[in-house]
Structures are given as C-alpha cells and as structure tokens.
Design a binder for these strands. Structure first.
Lengths: 178, 178
DNA sequence: GATTTATGTCAACAGTCCTGACATATCTTC
DNA sequence: GAAGATATGTCAGGACTGTTGACATAAATC
C-alpha cells in the first residue's frame, strides 16, 4: 500500500525523457538535503546572535568583498533594497558591519565588516568548512573538481562568471567535443 | 579601496586552518549560487500557481512516496506539523493532493498526488532536470560521481541514510584508509 | 539647472517557520 | 473496557525574509 503513483510513465510533461531521469531525481534530492544540512550548521550559530540567514549572506559577502557598495551587494544577493536595508540596519546597529563614505563617489556607502563581525563570520565559515573538509577528504581530487564542475554548470551563466577568474581557460560553455 | 579585510590571518576562530581554506570558501559560494539558481527555475513555475517552495517540497516528496503518512513527511521535511498543515491544506484544497485513510491504522492520512498534481510535479522536475542534464553533460561520469560523493558527505548521517539503498556497500563513513 | 544615480525610508502584504496549547480519533495495553 | 500513547488537526501569536509601491535626499553628470 505504498507507491502506486511513483512509477507512472513520464508522459504528460516530459516528452520522451532521456535515461538520466533517475540520476536527475537523485540529484534533486542531493541538492535539497545537502543544502539544508549545510545551512543548518550556520543557522545554529546565528541563533545565538538572534540573526537569520539573510544576515549571514550579507555579512559573508561584505566580508569577502571589503568596501563593497550597497548596489553591488544588491546585485550579488539579488534581493530588493528594502529587504537588504532591514538586514543591513541590524548588522550595523549591532556593530557587526560599519560603513564609510565612498572616496570617489560620495553617494556610495562602502560596507565593511568590523572586528566583531569578522569574529562571527570566521565562526560561521569554520562551521561550514568542517563539513566541506570532511566531504573533500572522502572524495579524491577528481571528485572534488567534478563537484565543482557540476555546481558551476547548474548556475546561471551570470553567476558562473563570478567564478571564472578561478576557472582554467578551458571551455565549459558550448564546446561539447562531439 | 577594496578588500583590506579579506586577507587577514584566520587566527581567531579557526586554529591553524588547513590549506583547504580557499577551496572551502569557494565551495561555500558554489553551494549558495548553485542552490539559488536551481530553485529559481522551479520558483518561476510555482509563481503561476501561486504556490511557494514549501508546497513544492511537500508535493515532491508525496509524489515520490505515494501513500506517505503525514508523520513520515514531517520527518523528511523536518518542519513542524503546523507549518506542514498550512501547506497541505492548500495542496489539498487546490486538488493537487488527495488523502486516503490508512488501511492498517485508520488514524493515518495517506497522502497521494492527484493527476493534476502529477502534471505540475512533472513540470517542476523537468525544469530542474534540464539544468542537471546540462550539468551532467558538461561533466564526465567520474565528475558526476564526485558531485554525488561530496553532496552525500556534506549531509547529516541521518539524511545520508536516505540514499544508502542506492549506495554501493562501501564505507563512506569512518574508514579513511590510513 | 535639469536629470540621473545611489541610497534610504515608510507602509503594507505574503510566505514560511516557530512555539504553546488544546482537541479528536484511534491504537495498544493492562 | 478503561487508561495511556499515538497520529493528526487547529487556534493564536510571533519572527524572519522577501515583495511592491511611493516618496525623499544627496551627489554626480550632462
């Protein structure tokens, strides 16, 4: 009495589905569970500071892009300025992030992580790094680059470009060697 | 004027950080962007039906576990029953999910995806499958298994077990071959 | 000086998750 | 069969995060 719906032919929406079907299904679940558990370790730390995931993301990208402008941060996060404003307000009020007037353009607010903010950020990164190091230890270097390739390919071209300075100048784009 | 904070020694929170540091940082970002873009393609479809991500997740796991009980679904999703109730109500009211009284235990509500729900679910899976197929085409089979290994290793042991029937009976646990 | 740009702010609404407290049927056990 | 445990539901209220729409200000640019 369980599972009569799961093996119906994939006829309606996917016309003649390629064989990758079950692999894709598994990957969908891998994404779900891995991402959930990955964010969970950070969420637990954030709880102690009464911060949410949005604060984490903002803090992270400010930390790795010291002096970033609000506009650029908005581009990375892809949320509205009103959403970001709420989050930034909190980070600034609690002293985790500071701001400085732009040197060349005084309209800009350059965002910086404070010493206190860096301590929290280090803690957050460390928590996730532990998971990743463990994951990388279980996988050989080839697997690691496979992971990287797949993740990059899943992304939007726009997001993929954020990583390109790190990519070897090979083609991961249209050249399918066939 | 950009980046004075990003290269400070990792002295505060991570005692003597291994060399994997920059790889870990990159992986953190890979997770963020890949997951975001991966869910985005589904979110766009869901918008047309005025449904959210929570509805997607519930629909998905009901679809791949036809006749699942509310309790089991709660275990998978790891949310409270009040949260799930709201989501299920909507799915049932809109005819995407149906329920049936448990055969052996009449307290149970067995959840099933309706034909209409299956159509939507197929559409959602197809959208993400397209991304994955493209990603898998760009990566050789070894890379694919590397992706899989890393994602599995990131997870909680508990979640990893959900995949174990599919895993070869090797040890990905404590055996580090050293 | 007029326009555009970078940023902020007020207000309202929606989705998702949480906690706490009760209620109801239905098993299970003594 | 009565008592307790279990599966599920529901009401109430609160928090975080994201959205839209409208308006405000300062600084850059033309």
């Amino acid at each position: 009495m369980d599972g009569p719906l799961s093996d119906l032919p994939t006829s309606l929406a996917s016309p003649a589905a390629p064989p990758l079907d079950s692999a894709a299904r598994e990957a969908i679940e891998l994404m779900f569970f891995a991402y959930r558990d990955f964010t969970d370790v950070a969420d637990r730390i954030l709880e102690d500071h009464d911060l949410g995931r949005a604060h984490h993301r903002a803090l992270y990208f400010i930390g790795t892009n010291g002096g970033i402008t609000v506009g650029h941060l908005l581009e990375i996060l892809n949320i509205t300025k009103q959403s970001l404003a709420r989050v930034l307000r909190r980070l600034i009020d609690s002293g985790l992030v500071t701001q400085r007037v732009g040197a060349s353009d005084r309209r800009q607010r350059l965002l910086l992580v404070s010493a206190q903010g860096q301590t929290l950020l280090d803690e957050l990164i460390e928590a996730q790094r532990v998971l990743l190091v463990r994951a990388f230890e279980h996988a050989d270097p080839a697997s690691l680059s496979g992971f990287r390739q797949v993740m990059l390919s899943i992304m939007t071209e726009e997001d993929r470009q954020r990583f390109e300075p790190l990519l070897p100048p090979e083609s991961t784009k249209t050249t399918r060697a066939a």
